[in-house]
């Protein structure tokens, strides 16, 4: 059996220029259940599929509110995500306390990116085993950022990470042009449909296994008003799920095609 000599720690490169520990961490992200995020000109939406470890247990937390203007969803190790989200809550609060300003989304994503990067460059540390989608709004508008264990962060128009997320990404790529002009409800529908694409055959979106987070702004006569980050869980989801089902047939005639595409 061949042994890989270059995956004992996260500070050693392989001769091919790879850091195996970081790549393994990225595998942990792929083990997590799928999360989808997308932005329009006014809103940012996070949609996540929750899993329960066993029939008797509760469902894991997939969407975390950080602040009024900011939230995230995670795929991978939930405990690592909790450490990161606690840090983000602290930073967000600090910004509000010292400047009276909600922290810019790019700034706070940069902070967790820097933290994750140091884990890949110091001996005896391990990379975070979690990928995040961070959705928030600031003076420049709504944003969606992707965060990876390598410390890489990038702004996205739409993104899906986690198990079987390729299906969701395909949906997002196909409908990318529509997102920008979507209102809140339409964007939610797209999010839920993208999530549905990535479901296994025998699975369905229910009030138990779906989580949604929305943040955005509404403008009334030229004045922008912040719509606080809203987390939908449990029964609150029901109307959203219904709405996403309603028009599926009418807009694209995909009700039948759905399952078949998931199969392919």
């Amino acid at each position: 059996m061949f042994r890989n000599n270059y995956d004992n720690d996260s500070v050693t490169f392989s001769p091919q220029g790879r850091i195996f520990q970081v790549e393994y961490a990225q595998e942990a992200v792929k083990q997590g259940s799928v999360v989808v995020g997308l932005v329009s000109k006014t809103h940012a939406v996070l949609v996540a599929l929750k899993r329960n470890a066993e029939e008797l247990s509760s469902y894991q937390k997939k969407v975390i509110a950080i602040d009024d203007h900011l939230g995230l969803s995670l795929a991978g190790l939930a405990s690592d995500a909790r450490v990161l989200s606690n840090f983000m809550k602290q930073q967000s609060l600090a910004s509000k306390m010292t400047y009276g300003r909600p922290i810019p989304v790019e700034r706070i994503v940069g902070m967790i990116g820097d933290r994750a990067q140091t884990n890949t460059q110091q001996y005896g540390r391990r990379p975070y085993g979690v990928g995040l989608l961070v959705a928030g709004i600031d003076e420049l508008g709504p944003h969606l950022f992707e965060f990876q264990p390598s410390g890489m962060t990038q702004e996205m128009l739409a993104c899906a990470i986690g198990a079987r997320s390729q299906m969701a990404r395909t949906y997002l790529e196909r409908h990318l042009d529509e997102f920008a002009e979507c209102d809140r409800d339409e964007l939610l529908k797209h999010g839920l449909r993208a999530l549905k694409e990535s479901l296994a055959q025998d699975k369905e979106l229910t009030v138990d296994n779906t989580s949604v987070g929305v943040v955005g702004s509404t403008s009334t006569d030229g004045k922008k008003k912040l719509e606080n980050f809203k987390l939908y869980d449990g029964q609150e989801i029901a109307p959203l799920l219904e709405a996403s089902l309603e028009t599926t047939g009418t807009t694209e005639g995909e009700t039948a095609g759905d399952a078949m595409e998931t199969d392919s």
């Binding site: 400047y99 940069g110 600031d138 420049l140």
Partner: peptide, 11 residues
């Protein structure tokens, strides 16, 4: 640290 954000007089 990032572009496009600035502290206003209130901040």
């Amino acid at each position: 640290s990032s572009h496009g954000h600035s502290l206003n007089a209130k901040n």
